[in-house]
Simulated assay, not measured.
Amino acid sequence: MTSELVLAATNEKLQEMDWMKNIEICELVSQDPGQAKEVIKAVKKRMGSKHANTQLWAINLLEMLMNNCGEHIHRQVIDSGLLPVLVKIVKKKSELPVREKIFLLLDATQTSLGGASGKFPQYYAAYYELVSAGVKFSQAPRVVPLEVRTTEMHKNNTRGVKPVSLKSVESTQKPKSQIFPESSIIEKAGAALEVLRDVLDAIDSQHPEGAKDEFTLDLVEQCSFQKQRVMHLVLTSR
């Protein structure tokens, strides 16, 4: 039954992710951890599909399973040999959204599991293998122009967000040095984090919904991208 659900949830004809089927699969695994083996086996098979859509829906399903179904899913991903399959897909010239999704999922998972010294170091090893191979994604995240950011902050003020001064934002964005590329990468990451911290500090605790607006989410996305660049720098500098 679970394999049939995975097949339906990863159908190449789907125009968007089938949330209901994905949730149903996660609930089945949560209620009966014994189903994890069959589900991951089915996901692995779908990752081998020639259809980019099928691969994308499969990796989205895997992400939901990892985030919601706990340790038995992580164990099955390792025991089933799915990790080498994911690494191979990222290394070869396949569809960019699929490759990027896998790379970011491995990064997030190995970080949440404690990296090389965590309970499942295999995830770190898979991620490190990709970084060592020079895998990276050059497209920048959506960056809101400084003028638009200031306007957005004034709009957000009606939802409980205290405005951040333009001067403070500019000071965190200004680079300190252009001598070394490595320094520039770290400074950009620090600047993005500094702005996000200022924005979060300015949110009224009585109106936490201010943290979910497009402006703040853009900053979170930018920080995530900069984290990827710093991780790549650290790992390749060893």
Rank of each mutant, 00 (worst) to 15 (best):
M1P: 10
E12K: 13
K13M: 14
Q15V: 09
M17S: 13
W19E: 07
M20K: 04
K21M: 10
L28N: 11
L28H: 07
S30V: 10
Q31L: 15
D32W: 03
G34L: 08
E38W: 11
E38Y: 12
V39K: 01
A42V: 04
V43A: 09
K44D: 08
K44Y: 08
M47F: 15
S49M: 01
H51Q: 09
A52W: 03
Q55C: 09
L56M: 06
W57Q: 11
I59F: 02
N60A: 07
L61E: 08
L61R: 03
E63T: 13
L65M: 01
N68E: 12
C69K: 06
C69M: 06
H72D: 12
H72I: 14
H74Y: 15
H74D: 06
Q76L: 00
Q76V: 04
I78P: 05
D79H: 00
D79P: 00
G81D: 01
L82K: 02
P84V: 03
V87T: 11
I89W: 01
V90Y: 09
K93S: 12
S94L: 09
I102N: 05
L105P: 03
L106I: 08
A108P: 00
P121E: 03
P121Q: 02
Y123E: 01
A125L: 03
E129V: 04
G134N: 10
A140T: 15
V143D: 00
P145M: 03
R149S: 11
T151Y: 00
H154D: 02
V161G: 01
T172H: 13
S177H: 06
F180K: 09
F180I: 06
P181I: 13
K188I: 08
A191I: 02
L193R: 04
L200A: 04
E209H: 12
E214Y: 10
E214M: 08
F215W: 13
F215G: 06
F215Q: 10
T216A: 15
L217R: 15
L217H: 15
L217S: 15
Q226H: 11
K227Q: 13
K227T: 14
Q228C: 07
Q228T: 11
V230I: 11
V230C: 07
M231Q: 12
H232W: 05
T236W: 02
